[in-house]
């Protein structure tokens, strides 16, 4: 396990170095001066500019400039937003938890719906149920998310009035942001309307999370289906059934556990996909997350924000990958071997 951890850690460090190299070089490709793009200080006075040039070591060669840039990132200094002139790292710290919250809830919904449906399809392999589930998943996969989001707002918010259409929580509730994860903050707050706020927040997260969940859920259906079919075809299942176990016992005691292991590995991969979908959905549902912020930054040509935002987001996705790898390794001893190490 130690070797496995070390391998992951080194992979992480090298990938991050590559990513910073990329975001560093992008500063020279964006229009405008590299030092302004790096720091976001568009209104800097000549004196401040001199200080900035000193801080980013622009008089030295490109290698030292890169080192200086790394130093700033490690210290948590991602520069200023060109549009609002506020500190990008504080903005990201404020916004990222909302995105994480939304993505996690969406992931949960996608798993809760996708995996059981996939299993059912596999058990009813080549029967009408299987075909039905597969065609529905095909449909779900092909629907563009922005259209689905608007349709969901039109049906569930405007026509039926079941769920709110925008934001994270009704503006009436004052919840102090401590962790940034709304649900935890609500539970920690001492507001007299705590449970009302909790209900309101769940109503707000429901529609966007479901919209995001649709595409990954269809992928989980296929993954669960294939992996279940594979498991059902193995010799140990046949042995179990030869032993005289009932079909239920076989599925719940042997098949599900083994099929799940294969799926967990893919959850990490799906998470990247899910965050991309979440970014578009945040715009539609006015969710105060990093996706909406990034897309607004693109509109406003806020290069510093784009570059730093992407860096943080990719770093975050990479951490999720590593975490799922660990979970996978913990669950499946085979994966800890050298063969799967890299």
């Amino acid at each position: 396990m130690l070797v496995f951890t070390l391998r992951r850690l080194s992979l992480f460090i090298f990938t991050m170095l590559l990513l910073t190299l990329l975001s560093f070089s992008v500063n020279f490709l964006f229009p405008g001066e590299a030092i302004i793009n790096l720091s976001g200080a568009i209104n800097a006075t000549p004196n401040q500019l001199i200080e900035l040039n000193e801080a980013y070591q622009t008089h030295r060669n490109i290698f030292w400039q890169y080192i200086a840039y790394l130093g700033h990132i490690i210290n948590g200094d991602l520069g200023l937003s060109m549009a609002s002139q506020s500190d990008i790292s504080t903005e990201i710290v404020n916004l990222l938890p909302a995105t994480i919250e939304l993505s996690l809830v969406a992931l949960l919904i996608a798993m809760l719906i996708g995996i059981p449906l996939g299993f059912i399809a596999a058990i009813k392999h080549n029967k009408p149920t299987d075909n039905l589930i597969l065609s529905v998943s095909m449909l779900g996969y092909s629907v563009p998310v922005f259209w689905l989001g608007l349709l969901a707002i039109l049906t569930f918010s405007i026509n039926l009035g079941w769920f709110p259409s925008a934001g994270q929580i009704s503006l009436l509730f004052e919840i102090e942001a401590v962790t940034g994860i709304q649900f935890i903050d609500i539970l920690m707050s001492d507001s007299p309307y705590k449970w009302q706020a909790f209900n309101d927040a769940s109503a707000h997260i429901f529609l966007p999370a479901c919209v995001i969940a649709v595409a990954p859920a269809t992928i989980f259906i296929r993954l669960a289906r294939t992996s279940m079919i594979e498991v059902l075809d193995t010799s140990y299942i046949r042995a179990a059934s030869a032993k005289g176990l009932t079909f239920r016992q076989i599925i719940f005691r042997h098949a599900i556990r083994n099929a799940l292991i294969k799926i967990i590995r893919h959850i990490g991969l799906q998470f990247a996909n899910l965050v991309t979908i979440a970014m578009v959905t945040e715009v539609i549902f006015s969710w105060p997350g990093i996706g909406r912020w990034l897309i607004e930054s693109i509109y406003q040509r806020d290069y510093t924000a784009i570059e730093s935002g992407l860096l943080v987001l990719s770093c975050f996705i990479f951490i999720v990958h590593i975490l799922t790898d660990f979970i996978y390794a913990a669950l499946n001893p085979l994966a800890r071997g050298n063969k799967y190490g890299a």
């Binding site: 918010s157 405007i158 259409s165 925008a166 934001g167 009704s170």
Partner: peptide
């Protein structure tokens, strides 16, 4: 308009 129709 959306917020009004959705009673937000």
């Amino acid at each position: 308009l959306t917020k009004l129709l959705a009673k937000e």
